[in-house]
Amino acid sequence: MIEDIEVEWILNDLLDFYGYDFSNYSRASLKRRITRLMTMDRFPSFAEFRYRVRMDPDYLKRFVEEITVTVTEMFRDPHFYKSLRTEVVPTLGAKPFIRVWHAGCATGEEVYSMAILLKEAGLLHKSLLYATDLNPGVLEKARHGIFPMAPMKLYSENYIESGGLEDFSAYYTARYDQVKFDESLGEKMIFSTHNLVSDRSFNEFDLILCRNVLIYFDKDLQERVLNLFDESMGQLGYLALGSKETLNFSAIRQKYKQLNREKIWRKIG
């Protein structure tokens, strides 16, 4: 592993040269990701790695994409999606218009999962799904709705376990080792770069999903981001976090009521 001080140097460079602020990211994860990237790209020394990051804006793109974790799944934690399907989505139905924000959507698998839930509830036509990430590269992938074929069997199982009754494979067309999801699902999605560290609230939402993103932040940044979500939350809106993330240590906790065993909270205050 690289040294702690080297991590700080890189973080300072990112802020000075590019305006990216990673200073409140979890150090254990950052250090591991940077070490991994240096090994993967075969840098002979830290100095050469640092020089490349400072001097090569194209390499910076790769750096940001590899340092931030963009691993995601469709219908990850099926029981969570079951709760969304049976307890959250029906209460959104009465609204004339439904706004959803996927914060840190990576390559978009969860956005498509949500679109499927809304479509099956007959609500997709009056919904808008805002999907944001700080990586332009992953958003480009998400926008196309093209995913690898290999995990579709798992996703299909997840879908069924989440209470899905349709034929999951009817939602996509397979070609070689990739699948393309039905364009009608993507029509209600708006993809945009947004950095949770530095960008502000941009709308008011009925449902904000931010799953397995806060784990990469330290406690201070987690609190800032939860406040950003609170500012962006409509009355009686829902906040959904990852299965090992919590609102319990946040000052906004008192305004929210946890739905059930899942990590879904509803704004009541």
């Binding site: 702690d4 150090r27 254990a28 784990i215 090992k244």
Partner: peptide, 21 residues
Amino acid sequence: APADYHLLIEKNQYFSLDFSE
């Protein structure tokens, strides 16, 4: 350690979880 996350240790004595590869 919870299923399906990597378990990391921060120097100021708390855990971080990680859902990377």
